[in-house]
Amino acid sequence: MPQPDLKLDVEGVNALLLKAFPDARPETMALAVEAAPGRVLVRRPFGPGLLRPGGVISGPTLMSIADTAAYGLVLAHVGEQLMAVTSSLVMNFLRGAAPGDIWAEALMLRLGRRIAVCDVRLWTESPDRLAAQATVTYAIPSA
């Protein structure tokens, strides 16, 4: 399946993420490290505040990063559409995420005029050892 063209590179995606969330600090936010047609990779630096009892990354943290990765992927392909909003997020927790930087790879499953559907895979140890997977749908405002 051919992938849609990028409208923004990594720097452009990160600039829009920081614009959308002006109170966020770059050192504690999930930001893009790679952007390619149909794909964005984000990294959220580890901090002890991300842990839940039991010493693993909390579920709400993983859900937030999955949503941010999908938002970054949508922005990379549609440009400055800050009012694109999550319409669905289905999260599957596969194993406890060990303490460490959190990585999320978002892949575009479908990009239409009004809806984008993304697959997001999250890990801390290795991409071969997924902690969670999410399917995230974004509603894209009409121009």
Rank of each mutant, 00 (worst) to 15 (best):
L31K: 07
A35E: 11
V90W: 03
E11V: 09
V90E: 09
M83T: 12
Y71S: 09
W103K: 04
A20W: 05
F46A: 07
G55P: 03
F93M: 08
V85K: 05
N14Q: 13
R44C: 14
A84V: 04
N14W: 05
G49M: 10
M108Y: 08
V78M: 08
L41P: 04
P60R: 04
A70W: 02
L62Y: 02
A20G: 12
T86D: 00
A15T: 13
T68E: 11
R95Q: 12
V85A: 13
E34C: 06
T28G: 14
T86E: 05
F93Q: 02
E80T: 05
S87K: 13
Q81R: 14
R52D: 05
A24L: 13
A20H: 09
D23W: 01
G38S: 13
V13L: 08
E34L: 15
L50C: 07
L31N: 03
P37Q: 13
L82I: 02
L109D: 14
P45V: 00
A66N: 06
G59S: 15
E80C: 07
P99M: 10
I115M: 14
M91W: 01
Q81E: 03
G38V: 11
V33Q: 14
P37S: 10
Y71W: 15
L31E: 07
I115C: 03
V90D: 15
A97R: 05
V90G: 10
S58F: 03
A35R: 10
P99H: 13
P26N: 01
F93A: 00
D101Q: 13
W103E: 09
A76H: 10
A116K: 15
S88F: 08
S88T: 14
P60E: 11
G47P: 02
R52W: 02
G55A: 06
R113A: 15
F93S: 04
L31Q: 08
G12H: 12
L82V: 01
V13N: 06
I57M: 09
A32T: 11
A70I: 03
S64F: 01
L62W: 03
G96R: 02
V78I: 13
V42M: 14
A97M: 01
R110C: 04
A116E: 10
P53C: 10
V10Y: 09
L17N: 13
A97K: 00
R114Q: 10
A24V: 04
A35H: 00
L31D: 02
A20I: 01
S87V: 11
M91Q: 00
A98I: 02
M108W: 07
V40H: 01
R110M: 13
D23N: 01
G12W: 06
P45D: 10
F46V: 04
V56G: 07
A84I: 12
L51H: 02
A76S: 15
V10Q: 07
A106S: 11
R44D: 09
L41E: 11
I102M: 09
F21G: 05
E105Q: 12
P26E: 04
A32R: 09
E80S: 14
P37W: 11
L89W: 00
P45I: 08
L41M: 13
V56C: 09
R114K: 14
R39I: 08
R110W: 08
N14T: 00
G49C: 06
L89I: 15
